[in-house]
Design a binder for these strands. Structure first.
Lengths: 242, 242
DNA sequence: CTGTCTAAAATGTCAGACAATTAAACGCAC
DNA sequence: GTGCGTTTAATTGTCTGACATTTTAGACAG
């Protein structure tokens, strides 16, 4: 670990990078304790507040955890699946909204990836996954459900589909595409007729997965893709006219 | 923006969360200036160093940028595609290595997602993408290429395949699966015979995409999946015996 | 041997100060 | 009035020193 003393600005960023590199490279293993803040301050020849800013940067990326007390300090943290999952969704959502990714692009990506999961999900889905999907379909059919709740349920349905593939790496990567689309989906007004079509397709998907019929699931997903695209286009047009 | 004064610990985390929420919710738009550190310190009733630690957390997530000088301050930052991409790869790689995801799972996810891209790539790939793929195939055939370089080239080839789909959302999500597998791929020793098989399949894929023949590409990818899995299993066995 | 108390170590926070940087405001010559 | 250099004010970056809080380990008394 060392920093460039010539570059006087952004000391805390440099220190954070130095420590981050030794974590990523594997020099420091999980649960290993970093030197104390004072020691780090001495090593890098900066003040303790500067070291602390660097450590907060790492904490923000879930790379370390800190613990107070006599045996306390900063420890390399095992990146938990749930945290990474949550962070991935946040980042994906921001990326879409801040860079004005259009509905078509996001939708295409989302369903292309979901269709990649369908064959695996047909093979491995458990009764639990099917039950979740059925429950969400039932929820989607409830009268008086707000558009936002309908979208929530839609996401939950598709998450069950993806999780059915029983591959955490797939679930993780898919989360970014499926959940990040929610703000875009929320712009759509779902009429009763829209909902009926979607629920019908969801039912076909659930049936297909239950029968382990991958081809049917794929076909229904393809139709759902096309239908969602249509709805999105209409919503965008309505928004443009207003 | 407000924080819980009862919970005395982790003030900087609370402040970071408060600011992050107003960025994510859209209350603060891109390039909007945050109050100065002193003003934030007053608002939250904490000291400036504490505010600074909070701001560093946000800076670590690329949510803000800071600028010195008279009109300086902290500004909401447009999350750039490249930064998010790089961060996504880092996180995915760490997630895989720290949680000991097995080769099979990662491999399955990677190729399932790639196969989702193939039809789109067959439709939209540009001559540029094809040229990149051909160049990487040529590089892979060079004698004396180290295993690591071979893997690098493999990743570059597949990235071109994915980018050919011309969907940034897909490219972004796929990056996590493709690039994060590199450390696992690096454990494999690629014999000349292994390489010949892989290069053959790569050539089939490139040919299929050039002909816009999506079915052929999918078939070659399926074979590549199976072959990579075999290589991975052998590598794991060899590692276990040692 | 056991329980309690104290001390030490570490992070969390604060206050105040100075340095560095940047742009706007100002003043002055032309 | 205009243009250019200078000053000045605002803001972040950093440092010093201090105190608060939390937690453990060890000393000590019973």
């Amino acid at each position: 670990m060392k920093i460039d003393p010539k570059n006087k600005s952004d000391l805390s960023a440099q220190i954070a990078k130095a420590i981050r590199d030794s974590i990523i490279s594997g020099d420091m293993i999980v649960d290993e304790r970093l030197p104390s803040e004072s020691e780090l301050a001495d090593q890098f020849d900066v003040s303790r507040p500067t070291v602390r800013e660097a450590l907060k940067r790492l904490a923000a990326q879930n790379l370390i955890r800190t613990q107070r007390g006599a045996t306390g300090g900063a420890f390399v943290r095992r990146l938990s699946y749930d945290e990474a999952y949550a962070q991935h969704i946040t980042t994906s959502t921001l990326l879409l909204s801040m860079n004005a990714v259009d509905f078509e692009t996001a939708c295409e990506a989302r369903f292309a990836l979901e269709r990649a999961c369908a064959p695996l999900s047909a093979k491995r889905r458990t009764p639990d996954h099917l039950a979740t999907m059925r429950a969400e379909i039932h929820r989607q059919a409830q009268p008086g459900l707000s558009d936002e709740r309908f979208c929530d349920s839609d996401v939950a349905f598709h998450r069950a589909l993806v999780d059915g593939a029983d591959n955490p790496v797939l679930s993780y990567q898919l989360a970014g595409a499926v959940e990040a689309m929610q703000p875009l989906m929320n712009m759509i007004t779902f009429t009763q007729r829209n909902r009926d079509v979607i629920i019908g397709l969801h039912t076909r998907i659930a049936d297909a997965l239950e029968m382990k019929n991958s081809a049917d699931a794929d076909e229904a997903l393809a139709e759902l893709t096309a239908y969602t695209l249509t709805l999105g286009e209409e919503a965008m047009e309505a928004r443009a006219r207003r």
